[in-house]
Simulated scan of single mutants.
Amino acid sequence: MSNNGGRCSDRINVAIDGPAGAGKSTVARKVAEQLGYVYIDTGAMYRAVTLAANRAGIDPGEQDRLKELVEVLNIRLAPGENGQMVFLNEEDVTSEIRSRDVTQHVSQVASHESVRIRLVELQRQLAAARGIVMDGRDIGTHVLPDAELKIFLTASVHIRALRRYQELKDRTGVSLEQLEAEIAGRDLSDEQREISPLVCAKDAIRIDSSELTIEQVVALIQELGRTKLAEAK
Rank of each mutant, 00 (worst) to 15 (best):
Asp59Gln: 13
Val72Lys: 15
Gly80Ala: 06
Asp59Ala: 15
Lys67Phe: 11
Thr50Pro: 09
Leu88Met: 10
Leu69Lys: 00
Tyr46Glu: 08
Val86Pro: 02
Gly61Pro: 03
Ala48Pro: 03
Glu90Trp: 07
Thr50Phe: 05
Leu88Thr: 06
Ala56Asp: 08
Val49Pro: 01
Arg76Tyr: 08
Tyr46Thr: 12
Glu68Asn: 13
Thr50Cys: 14
Ala52Pro: 09
Glu71Val: 08
Leu77Glu: 00
Lys67Val: 11
Gln63Gly: 09
Gln84Lys: 04
Glu71Thr: 11
Leu73Ile: 10
Gly80Ser: 06
Asp59Glu: 15
Gly83Thr: 07
Leu66Cys: 07
Ile58Val: 11
Ala78Asp: 10
Arg65Gly: 03
Glu71Ala: 15
Glu68Ser: 14
Gly83Glu: 05
Tyr46Ile: 13
Asp59Tyr: 05
Glu68Lys: 15
Arg47Glu: 04
Leu51Cys: 09
Asn82Tyr: 03
Ala56Leu: 10
Asp64Tyr: 08
Asn54Gly: 15
Ala53Cys: 14
Asn89Trp: 11
Glu62Leu: 10
Val49Asn: 00
Leu51Ala: 10
Glu68Arg: 15
Leu73Asn: 01
Glu90Arg: 11
Thr50Ala: 10
Ile58Glu: 00
Ala52Arg: 04
Leu69Gly: 01
Val72Ala: 13
Leu77Gln: 07
Glu71Met: 09
Leu66His: 00
Ile58Asn: 09
Leu88Asp: 04
Glu68Pro: 03
Gly57Phe: 07
Lys67Met: 06
Glu71Ile: 04
Asp64Thr: 10
Leu73Ser: 05
Glu68Asp: 15
Arg76Met: 06
Gly80Pro: 03
Asn54Phe: 02
Gln63Ala: 15
Leu66Pro: 00
Glu81Ala: 14
Arg55Lys: 12
Arg65Phe: 04
Ala48Thr: 07
Arg47Phe: 06
Phe87Glu: 10
Leu51His: 02
Leu51Met: 08
Glu81Cys: 05
Gly61Ser: 14
Gly83Leu: 08
Val70Gly: 00
Pro60Glu: 08
Ala56Gly: 09
Lys67Glu: 12
Lys67Leu: 10
Leu51Asp: 00
Val86Asp: 02
Thr50Tyr: 05
Ala53Trp: 03
Arg76Glu: 11
Asn74Arg: 15
Arg65Leu: 13
Gln84Leu: 11
Leu73Glu: 01
